[in-house]
Write a protein that binds this DNA or RNA. Sequence first.
DNA 1: CGGAGGGTTGAGATTCATCAACGCGTGTGG
DNA 2: CCACACGCGTTGATGAATCTCAACCCTCCG
Lengths: 247, 247
Amino acid sequence: MRLPCNFNEQKKPQLFEKLSEPSLEKLLQHSVMQDYESGRILVQQGDSPECIFLVIEGALRTFRIEAEEGHEATIRMLQPGDTCMEAVLFMGGPSPITVQTIQTSKVLQVPERIVKKHVTEDPQFAVNLLRIVTRHYKNAMIQIDSMNIKSPIQRVGYYFLLKHLDAGHDNMEFELPFQKQMIANYLGMTPETFSRTLKQMKSLGVEVDGEKIKMRDAFSLCHFCDSDTAAICPLHNKEHCKDCLLH
Amino acid sequence: MRLPCNFNEQKKPQLFEKLSEPSLEKLLQHSVMQDYESGRILVQQGDSPECIFLVIEGALRTFRIEAEEGHEATIRMLQPGDTCMEAVLFMGGPSPITVQTIQTSKVLQVPERIVKKHVTEDPQFAVNLLRIVTRHYKNAMIQIDSMNIKSPIQRVGYYFLLKHLDAGHDNMEFELPFQKQMIANYLGMTPETFSRTLKQMKSLGVEVDGEKIKMRDAFSLCHFCDSDTAAICPLHNKEHCKDCLLH
DNA sequence: CGGAGGGTTGAGATTCATCAACGCGTGTGG
DNA sequence: CCACACGCGTTGATGAATCTCAACCCTCCG
């Protein structure tokens, strides 16, 4: 099986990073490519995990459900190149999360036993997994403190800051990669509050037009920076980094 | 260096689980044991991580700070046998968390470079780390949905359920392992709300007397069970598991 | 044209944080 | 030995913030 060509060298999924040809080949040999319509449940909370999912096209989300009211808490939202269920495989026990497509998606599935076997055979693969899982964990920690101690506008601001840095710090425009209600849930608020918060952001120089976000200048979002993002912001400690809360 | 004797075979820290004698010896050789008073900061959010901390005696907590108001969000609370900063070592970049003692504590510190080297040399050690990190991640996911979609009483109930299962399911009494304000913050509420919530729990058959929690019967907390805990509850699917939300 | 889904806006209800005061146990210093 | 301060936990009153419910607009699509 060949990896689809829409992953060029730079956007190669982290799961396969630096793997030797034969090692990669071995993994892909037993993997299955599959297409799903939007809204399809791939794993149910409580199921025992059976494979890792690598998003080729489309988008997935992982979330948890509260039994009583049926409310959902989004844990992650995945885009092409992202993987999920790697951590769950090594947790032992049933899956704590549900996995669902939120667009029509093409997904590569690597079976559990292949993964577990390969981890012991290729140290690079083990390191990749460790890196991926720790990055998820870091995001989770940020999510936790967001819910606890940040206001809605701070959460949205931080989310926008990350997307802005993704798009390139000299790019004054970026797009929301998911539906607004999805992002709202991910940020721990209702679609209504999210919508109202977007309006508040105008006064900070951030215009919202449908899916497009336009920033007045590159520092409009500096106010939402923290030690985590400062480390990856090319403008950090430059003269203009004035609104940064760290200073 | 010898591991202190208060870890018997069963309570051996997961970090060292199933390691061969020489492997363990190698790790401990370069580790440092240290005592700290309560309230001491061991790692500051933004610092680059330098070692793994293994709690021998006392207690630590890890948390994140919000810059503007100085509010804190507790990520984890550690007891003897627990470790922290393992995940951070592999995340790359500065530490997203602050680590602090919350009791006078004895802590074993394993330097970063020893850990990273040992991971590639002993696969069992790598697997241990992967298990530990994924378990943290799982807890983080549960924390996220707690903040989002659970009421204070549900959060406290779930926390109590875990402690109850820890103490043994046939034990109708257990103790709070930390200060109430610490637990409150960990559960994402103020000490006041926590206190009020404790009173509410009386009507569910859970008495609180200082640090001691007394349950009327083994099923008082079943109401707060979910798919994650059901898997480890010895009473699950037994006839008495009546209040379980899963049914 | 009509319906469905996503997004927005408004009004009201609820819940939790905040602020303040108090009780209690402990340790300290006069 | 007592007075006092301090930290922790509790209780009460208040207010602000966000969720809920409802209506509406818009676009897309059959």
